[in-house]
Nucleic acid binder design. Structure first.
Lengths: 128, 128, 128, 128
DNA sequence: GTGGTCTAGACCACA
DNA sequence: GTGGTCTAGACCACG
């Protein structure tokens, strides 16, 4: 479980953290019940502000992926196949997926090729 | 070709426009050579500022999807399968796709189901 | 001597014409004394405005590459090795060359490679 | 690192800034990691608008030469030989170089002389 | 009449 | 305090 950040990247730092943790949950590096580093611990390790880590954790909480306890810290709350996604979650995801796939298609990637890439990326998660 | 914006949405207005136009190009609503509304016209229709539309068009130009004409206004420059995507473009796309697919998987969607949704979304584009 | 224009290209049409004529003079397609098409002839051929052709010719005149006669039309006035460039002309050219070469270097092209490309491009002119 | 602008020059202000920064990166005045002035600061120093500086920086970012940081301001991202140029970048550069070299040749500069000037300009970059 | 550029001033997200 | 976004209004280059 190695987290890194690019302070001057295109995405805000808190989202970089959120994304990496989502991927870690997907590929099994993090399992339901696993504890995440404390905010101040992670902030110190990465040389960033504690509030930034906090914001990342809060986003994950509002997505239902982690639970934030006063004493337990941040704990992974949901893993693959743990609980089916809600309708709102699903509609929002589909909207983003449509945009992403449209971009690929509009920019010249052939649909079978796009689908194959999606399959390969998903395989990264299931195989581990 | 109906464009709408949510001024208070999560994404900036110019990106909402960019996204909708990308989808329109992908699904065939807009074909290479088709003219987009003029910046002033679209701005007036949507009740937003000219510069905001301008920024959306400028981004699309830098992505190679539209050409900004001197007299004609904005014109769709690239359609599906018009030209293969560059390596950088592709790597960036794959990074975003990984995050999006990881999110789906981590939130409980089964890989076959995810893949099926991707296939269905792509079919929206190829069928029209 | 085939001239073409992209109405929606990055460069203004009059400059596209100017550039192509400059290259034609350099590579020998056009020689000193050769007549260029009349403004209305060229405008009709390319489907553009007469004033646009006029502007291109005027720029070339101010650069000393063509003479504009009331009765003779536009005539190539100067060719390779015809007359050494003036100091102002030269300083301005060098400024633009510095920017172009800096861009190549800053973007990762090795100086020997850049120089070789320049040599090859110049050879296109001398060989014909 | 001294930047100047000519408000009434032929090139737009933002491009004058862009060009000067490209040259500065090429000749080593600016090295990867170096910070550029903040948009507001530079705008105030030059007596121009913040948005104009912003546009210059944004172009440089889209060219991959700088990263725009959240806290640090603009930072030089790519230096000479840091990363090879892409194919599109290269083709576009060659087109512009052809025009520039043709102009020199057509205006009476001998090819060896032109090449020597290019070599000298490149030497300005490598020597520092 | 089109997009391109510049100015001016405001509010927000991020850290 | 930084860049990012949006608004408003003006002038210019191009065709």
């Amino acid at each position: 479980m190695l987290l890194t950040v690019e302070p001057d990247g295109d995405d805000p730092i808190y989202q970089q953290l959120r994304d990496q943790i989502v991927v870690a949950v997907a590929d099994g590096t993090l399992k339901p019940g696993d504890a995440l580093p404390t905010t101040r611990q992670l902030a110190a390790d990465l040389g960033i502000n504690m509030h930034t880590v906090n914001k990342a954790y809060d986003r994950l909480r509002s997505e239902g992926l982690v639970r934030l306890g006063r004493r337990t810290g941040a704990v992974v709350a949901r893993g693959p196949a743990d609980e089916p996604a809600g309708a709102d979650e699903l509609a929002d995801w589909e909207r983003r997926a449509r945009t992403l796939l449209a971009e690929a298609f509009a920019k010249g990637m052939a649909p079978p090729e796009v689908l194959e890439r999606c399959r390969a990326l998903l395989a990264e998660f299931t195989s581990r």
